[in-house]
């Protein structure tokens, strides 16, 4: 225990603090994920429209999100807005905004991809059977798009959960921040704490993301055709 630095975990409320930190990270990511899913579906549907203005704007939005490292976005929103615009944006709100901004773009692109992946003759054979546009969308197109979409969006969710570890950079006390604090506080008594604590964090993230991975794999297998 001592050698691996795991002993620190059981000192005082360290384990609880770590779990609390994980809770904070999950809270931020789940709010951002929820926002991204909803806004992403809207954005994705919007992108299937043929309007050139909508097309250009969404292209730009997507490119910005793709090119810009999340960390830069975080700094930009957190420090930029508070200093320049004088908004009183706390670190957690800034994190949610940045992750939702990112997630919406990625989710939108997945939704767009899923919708256009349904072949044209699926629409036509539904129309040929006398189905209306909305009947066609709700019983033929959307169910097929969702089957495409769910495994991909679950992967996005796990990526978002992992990436929330960045928010400690703007002072959110989440699991990595707590780890650093614990390691600092025990530098003298348990010099190996770093290994034990980060190993624990690894396990915690694994436990948080693993179920999503399994679910994605399961659905992929179930719906493969």
């Amino acid at each position: 225990m001592q050698a691996l630095g795991l002993d620190v975990l059981f000192k005082g409320s360290n384990l609880l603090r770590l779990l609390g930190g994980l809770g904070k990270a999950l809270e931020i990511s789940l709010i951002a994920v929820a926002l991204s899913l909803i806004l992403g579906v809207l954005f994705g549907v919007l992108m299937t429209f043929r309007n050139p203005v909508i097309r250009a704007l969404s292209r730009i939005y997507l490119e910005i999100v793709r090119i810009m490292p999340q960390m830069v976005l975080l700094f930009l929103v957190f420090f930029g807005t508070t200093r320049v615009f004088g908004w009183d944006l706390n670190a957690e709100a800034a994190s949610v905004i940045v992750f939702a901004f990112w997630g919406t773009a990625e989710m939108g692109d997945l939704v767009r991809g899923a919708i256009i992946s349904v072949p044209k003759h699926q629409y036509e054979s539904a129309f040929a059977l006398g189905m209306t546009k909305s009947q066609t969308y709700f019983t033929i197109i959307i169910p097929q798009a969702i089957r495409q979409l769910i495994p991909l969006s679950i992967n996005l969710i796990t990526r978002m959960i992992k990436t929330t570890s960045l928010v400690m950079m703007i002072g959110v006390v989440e699991v990595l921040k707590v780890s650093q604090q614990i390691i600092e506080a025990n530098r003298m008594t348990s010099p190996n704490a770093a290994f034990g604590i980060y190993l624990t964090v690894f396990v915690l993230y694994f436990i948080a993301c693993w179920p999503f991975s399994i679910l994605a794999k399961h659905l992929e297998r179930k719906w493969s055709n």
Binding site: E124, S125, A126, F127, L129, G130, W223, N225
Partner: peptide, 20 residues
């Protein structure tokens, strides 16, 4: 038109069953 399409059946060259 959807009323009229019900009275006309059509089968295409591509296999167009609903896969789900």
């Amino acid at each position: 038109i959807t009323k009229l399409r019900q009275r006309v059946g059509m089968v295409f060259q591509s296999y167009d069953l609903f896969p789900h």
